[in-house]
Amino acid sequence: MRKKTGLGGKKDLNADLNLTPFIDLLSTMVCFLLITAVWIDIGSVEIKQSHGTQASESKKVTYDLDVVFKNPTSLRLNLKRKGRTVKSFNVKSENFESTMSQMNSIVQNKVLKYKNKAIEIATATITPRSSVNYGNLISTLDVLRSNKIINIGVLSAKGQ
């Protein structure tokens, strides 16, 4: 029997949590979240095929960049201004991965710092070849996008 002390009864310090609704709520949440869960992280890479973008309309001195594939391990970068090629860079390596890393360093050190000045690339265009697969094309887009070249188009080549 509980011993009375003072005027009021002494409250029990141990509170019991009603587990049934708690487990109900948790199981409902688990079911809902499992059904709506997305296990594959799908993203997108935007391609703007139209000519004349917002970037090219700005008054800054801007250049265009053409990426012309010869084969998966060899490509040419043409830096253009007002439609005329001002400088070309050849990229060639033993495999595709090393070609991409070489292209990345050329874009960073030579293209974006043309004549030791930081330049802006308004649009980039990729000319694919049939020997270059879609996975390689996405890797090329990755290199350009990681160097903050956003307006990228892909030429719809026939044959080759």
Binding site: P128, Y134, N136, G159, Q160
Partner: peptide, 10 residues
């Protein structure tokens, strides 16, 4: 990813 890039570009 193995599809030819020219097919995709077309």
């Amino acid at each position: 990813k193995e599809v030819s890039s020219t097919t995709v570009s077309t």
